[in-house]
Nucleic acid binder design. Structure first.
Lengths: 113, 113
DNA sequence: CCGGATCCCGTCCGATACTG
DNA sequence: CAGTATCGGACGGGATCCGG
């Protein structure tokens, strides 16, 4: 997700932040509130620990999520959206609505291919 | 861009359509009207002919763009958005605005990394 | 429980050369 | 002009093992 060329337009820049395979889903999972690592993982069927960790760290570097590590005997890490992350999530709203509305159509196109 | 798992949410489905490296930029280029292959290519600095062709074909299969081939002595192919494609483009509007608004911030985060 | 480290593989993508 | 064909490299991402 490191861009070598200058951004052509705003969407270009936005997708550089949210372009990872699981990032929008992480955003989506965290939109309902703070969650522990394991909780996030459970909401993303199929993601590996390594990749989830990587993408969370990248989102953290982009100031989209914050990471809170609790120093207890039982390891516990919580993630939540920043204000910046919430604004990104709102900007994704219409796209999500579009996808939800046309989901069946997309799936049927995929099926015929 | 062929999905093996079921879509988790609408954004998931939308990104399956628009997830290619250059697809949103193609959408963006075609949003101002019909364009020839070479014109589209000129607006996407760095894209290779092969990849541009591939992504245009995928968008065509997803009914996002239409392809019009003219049978003239000089080869000429024009691409334009479908109604479906225009609706997708509108859904991308807020995300583009978000990216444009925070573009400088994103770039500076990238620079420090 | 939450990762870090390592290995490995598929695919995505770019460069080049060639064609109608 | 608008592609097709082929090759090679880079990168994303999964599996597994190990550590605090």
């Amino acid at each position: 997700m490191v861009r070598k060329r200058p951004y052509v337009c705003g969407i270009d820049a936005a997708l550089d932040v949210v372009g990872g395979k699981w990032k929008v889903l992480i955003l989506w999972a965290l939109s309902t509130g703070t969650k522990r690592f394991g909780e996030v993982k459970r909401e993303l069927p199929g993601v590996s620990v390594k990749v989830l960790t990587e993408q969370l760290r990248e989102l953290e570097a982009d100031e989209i999520v914050t990471r809170h590590e609790y120093d207890e005997t039982v390891p516990r890490v919580e993630y939540s959206l920043t204000e910046f992350g919430r604004s990104l999530n709102e900007a994704l709203g219409p796209l999500g609505a579009w996808g939800a509305r046309h989901r069946a159509r997309i799936e049927s196109l995929r099926a015929n291919a």
